[in-house]
Amino acid sequence: MKKLFMLIIVNVALAVYSVLFGWYPQISLFDATCYRILYLHVPMAWNMYFAFTLTLIFSIAYLLKENEKYDKIAFCSAVLGILYGFGAITSGMLWANEVWGSYWNWDPRQTATLMALLAYIGYIALRESIPDVERSRTISAVFGVSAYVTIPISYLSAVAFRSLHEQLPHQPLSFESYVLLALNVVTSFAVFIALLKEFSR
């Protein structure tokens, strides 16, 4: 627990530093300070993708081995994935409001990520709605595997379709911003792993 709180302090301190002093490009079309949202949005989105991938892996493992521990990890990872996914979508909406002109644009990435999030909320709802514990674990593991189809769609939607995401505005980032972004991703990922360990204990 002590290790988790140390990691959280580092993670939050870095997030605050990035928001207050992080690099942003000089663009006059809109308030370019909104670029600082990237330092928070990207780690949350990657944590969400990683969390749902873990749910897939441990759901398969549960179906193969029927080990209670695997089911617990799959479930806890889905809960964390939903929390981080909510953060990724809302921070993305705040960015979109400034850069694209409105909070919600039915952009392929926005829509596909919302669908993924709804699929995993359905996973939790389904799990809680079945009173028989063994049955609930097996059915939710099957759902945990099938819900994963939304993740590659969400990830590839910005590349495969004509998407606003990452393409508008096409603005190269500085080396300094990549370093700060990488640090945020690494510390956020460390917090995610520590939280998952505490959750699924």
């Binding site: 300070t33 928070l40 921070s91 409001n97 204990r201």
Partner: peptide, 30 residues
């Protein structure tokens, strides 16, 4: 600075706080 940056930071911290609160409750429960 764009206000949405502060809101994003608040959401980010809130997510970590909620998750660690659940983790803390679980560890106390056990």
């Amino acid at each position: 600075m764009y206000w949405g940056v502060y809101v994003s930071l608040a959401i980010y911290i809130a997510i970590i706080a909620i998750a660690s609160f659940i983790a803390l409750r679980r560890s106390k429960h056990e």
